[in-house]
């Protein structure tokens, strides 16, 4: 029992030594659209939802993204990230099995692989491939980043990327996009707190219409996005 206890103490020490300012700066680097994970190429099925008429304005976009955050990939990625940060076994296998379609799997695998490739070169982390939230969770733990901030910034980057996609697809004004993001940011904080235990038995996804849109994207004739 001595070894796990020592690990816990070391982990806690690491977490308290990183200042919030440094943590926020490192996370904003990792989660910035400029970080080479190619997030801009993935729409998470949004391209089909727009094409099929489910999202036609900023209000409908905000409703759709609220669903994804509370009952879809937002909440489930948050739990997977937390489980990975805590070093739970089999988190990556769970993340892959939980992907609801081929493009969803590709989206999380390719962004995860690109993130790991860069972080292994720049921060000297391991280069074991992992799905995106699992890769972020592991890297954040290694750098001693606080879990709640890591999750909420991950979620904000997730919706922010989808808002940029919608600004191009619907199309919407840039200001409208920022209004939507401002409205969704408190949700990111709330979900982060709910997910911190990283209990994978609580994984859930109800966003069936969004999953169906992602499946239908595979055969959509006009596509700007990979998913």
């Amino acid at each position: 029992m001595a070894a796990p206890m020592a690990t816990i103490i070391l982990t806690l020490t690491a977490h308290t030594t990183m200042s919030t300012e440094r943590a926020a700066l490192l996370l904003s680097q990792w989660l910035s659209p400029a970080f080479p994970v190619g997030a801009f190429a993935y729409s998470h099925g949004l391209e089909t939802a727009v094409a099929e008429g489910a999202i036609a304005d900023a209000t409908e976009l905000a409703e759709w993204l609220t669903d994804l955050l509370l009952w879809g990939a937002g909440a489930s990625d948050a739990r997977l990230l937390a489980a990975s940060w805590q070093g739970a076994a089999d988190t990556d296998d769970t993340a892959r099995a939980f992907a609801s379609s081929a493009e969803r799997l590709r989206e999380t695998e390719l962004q995860g692989a690109a993130f790991v490739a860069t972080v292994s070169k720049v921060w000297d982390h391991s280069n074991d491939p992992a799905t995106y939230p699992v890769a972020i969770g592991a890297a954040a733990a290694r750098e001693g980043l606080p879990l709640d901030l890591t999750i909420s910034m991950y979620l904000q980057a997730f919706v922010s990327n989808l808002i940029s996609a919608a600004v191009r697809l619907v199309p919407l004004g840039q200001t409208d996009g920022q209004v939507v993001l401002k409205r969704l940011t408190p949700l990111c904080e709330r979900i982060s707190k709910d997910a911190m235990e990283g209990d994978l038995h609580e994984l859930s996804s109800l966003c069936w219409a969004s999953d169906i849109a992602a499946m239908r994207h595979e055969t959509q004739t006009t596509r700007l996005f990979r998913t």
Partner: peptide, 28 residues
């Protein structure tokens, strides 16, 4: 022995309000 498919749904509360949401059931 390897997990290849996992589907989990936890719906607690007003099912119709959930199913009317656009990305959940869109009224289904």
């Amino acid at each position: 022995g390897r997990l290849i498919y996992l589907d989990a749904a936890r719906l607690n509360g007003d099912a119709e309000a959930h199913l009317d949401r656009p990305a959940i059931g869109a009224g289904a």
